[in-house]
C-alpha cells in the first residue's frame, strides 16, 4: 500500500504542475482478462491512470473498449488479472468494504416495494446508520437532487429521469467521496439528459466529489469532464487522455463555443487513432 506522501509524489504526468491533489484512483499496468468459452478475452490492457481528488473524469469509447469493465474493476466488482489498482490507497475490495464510493448504474434499479425515501435510505440501513441520522441524510440528498416532496412516492409514480435522480441520491446518501457512474443517463431522452447533465455538474461543484463517469456520448463527456479518457477496443486500452480547458462554470450554451468544439474534435481524433470507427 502506498503512503499518503508516496501518493502525492506519484508523478503520473511530467507536464502537470508540481502541486496536485492526491490521486484517489490509481492504476498502473492494469490487465484484465476474461476467461470465456471461446478462449481468453483481453478486456483491459496496460491501463495507466491517476484520478485526483475532485476530478470529473469521463471514460469514452465504443462498446467493448473496457470502459465499464474498468469502472467495475475500480469498484471491486471485477478482479484485475495483472498490474496495480488502488482506490483511496487501498485495494478495490478494501475500498468497497470501507464503502469508499457510490455506484450509479445505467438503470435506476430502485426497489419497487420501497418508496423513494425508502430506496435512498436502504444503503444507510445496510451500513447501520442511526435512525435520526438516516432521516436527516435522506432529506438532504433528496433536496440535493431536487426530489424534495417525492419521498413518499413509489418509483413507478416517477418519470425515468426522476428515478435516475433518486438513484444518484441513493449513491450520495452515505459518506463516499467517489461517485462511479456507468452510463447513468444512457437510457434517457436527450432533453432529460441535458437537464440532468447540468444538475450533475452543479452537484459535483457543490459536493466536491471525485466522479468517474462512463459514457459513449462525446458531447456529454466534453460538457461534464475536467478530463476525458479515450478508450479503444480489442484489446480494451486507453488511447488518449485529454485535459479539458473549459472553465468550471459551464452553462449548456458552452457547447456551441469554439473551445468546446475543439475538445470534441480532439476526442473524436483520439477515437479515430484507436480505430474506434473501424
Amino acid at each position: 500500500m502506498l503512503s499518503q506522501d508516496e501518493i502525492e509524489d506519484f508523478d503520473w504526468d511530467p507536464e502537470e504542475p508540481a502541486v496536485q491533489p492526491p490521486a484517489v484512483i490509481e492504476a498502473r499496468g492494469l490487465q484484465l482478462v476474461f476467461e470465456t468459452r471461446e478462449g481468453p478475452v483481453q478486456a483491459l490492457k496496460d491501463v495507466d491512470l491517476a484520478v485526483r481528488k475532485g476530478d470529473f473524469v469521463s471514460f469514452i469509447g465504443p462498446s467493448g473498449c473496457g470502459k465499464t469493465t474498468l469502472l467495475r474493476a475500480i469498484a471491486g466488482l471485477e478482479a484485475p488479472t495483472g498490474g496495480d489498482l488502488m482506490v483511496n490507497g487501498m485495494s478495490p475490495d478494501q475500498a468497497r468494504e470501507s464503502r469508499a464510493y457510490g455506484y450509479v448504474f445505467q438503470a435506476a434499479g430502485l426497489y419497487p416495494w420501497r418508496t423513494i425515501a425508502g430506496n435512498v435510505r436502504l444503503p444507510l440501513e445496510i451500513m447501520g446508520y442511526a435512525a435520526s441520522e438516516r432521516e436527516k441524510r435522506v432529506k438532504d440528498v433528496l433536496q440535493l437532487v431536487g426530489l424534495q416532496g417525492f419521498d413518499g412516492m413509489f418509483p413507478w409514480q416517477l418519470s425515468g429521469g426522476m428515478q435516475q435522480r433518486a438513484s444518484i441520491a441513493r449513491a450520495l446518501a452515505f459518506d463516499a467521496d467517489i461517485l462511479l457512474m456507468d452510463e447513468p443517463f444512457g437510457a434517457l431522452d436527450e432533453i432529460v439528459r441535458d437537464h440532468l447533465n447540468e444538475q450533475l455538474l452543479s452537484l459535483w461543484k457543490r459536493t466536491g466529489k471525485t466522479i468517474a463517469f462512463v459514457t459513449h456520448s462525446i458531447p456529454e463527456a466534453v460538457y461534464l469532464s475536467t478530463r476525458i479518457v479515450v478508450m479503444s477496443p480489442r484489446p480494451g486500452r486507453i488511447t488518449d487522455i485529454i485535459d479539458s480547458p473549459l472553465p468550471p462554470d459551464r452553462p449548456l450554451e458552452i457547447r456551441d463555443t469554439p473551445e468546446f468544439l475543439e475538445v470534441a474534435r480532439q476526442v473524436r481524433e483520439g477515437l479515430r487513432a484507436g480505430h474506434a470507427y473501424d
Binding site: A75, R96, G102, F105, G109, I126, M127
Partner: peptide, 16 residues
C-alpha cells in the same frame, strides 16, 4: 445482476 452488484457496492451481508 445489477441489483446484486448494487448490494455488493454497499458491502451488504448475505443476510441483508
Amino acid at each position: 445482476a445489477m441489483q446484486l452488484d448494487l448490494m455488493r457496492t454497499w458491502n451488504a451481508s448475505r443476510g441483508q
